[in-house]
């Protein structure tokens, strides 16, 4: 696991998200109302909606295209919909956020 620093908690609006471009595709980084940070693939398993553009509520996000709801903690779709999205490890130290990516995957670039 390699850790990459991507910015500070303050860079993300509370109950909001930003995205990070990586060679593996975009990653959505979310900040909840209680300042927890989560990262998941920015790609809805339904039809590829950019999850970082959805409305954030609790520790969930609602996809902007067709309203599937995903848990930011587990990446699982909630309610009747079935699917999941990859979660990415996050570390916050002194307000600075890092995300962890697998070297093997990175090397594949």
């Amino acid at each position: 696991m390699n850790w990459f620093e991507i910015g500070t908690v303050e860079d993300i609006p509370a109950r909001g998200a930003r995205c990070v471009s990586t060679p593996q595709g975009k990653i959505g980084v979310f900040r909840t109302a209680d300042n927890r940070i989560f990262a998941i693939d920015d790609h809805c398993p339904h039809k590829g909606g950019p999850l970082s553009q959805g409305i954030v509520h609790g520790a969930s996000v609602t996809c902007p295209l067709h309203n599937w709801v995903f848990s930011l903690e587990t990446g699982e779709a909630q309610g009747a919909d079935e699917g999941s999205v990859r979660t990415i490890p996050v570390r916050v130290v002194d307000g600075r956020i890092s995300i962890g990516l697998e070297p093997a995957l990175m090397a594949a670039e």
Partner: peptide, 17 residues
């Protein structure tokens, strides 16, 4: 401004092994 820009752009090199 934050809405229209990625937070970071990770164009990492092949593994730093």
């Amino acid at each position: 401004k934050h809405e229209f820009r990625p937070m970071a752009n990770l164009s990492f090199q092949p593994a730093a092994e």
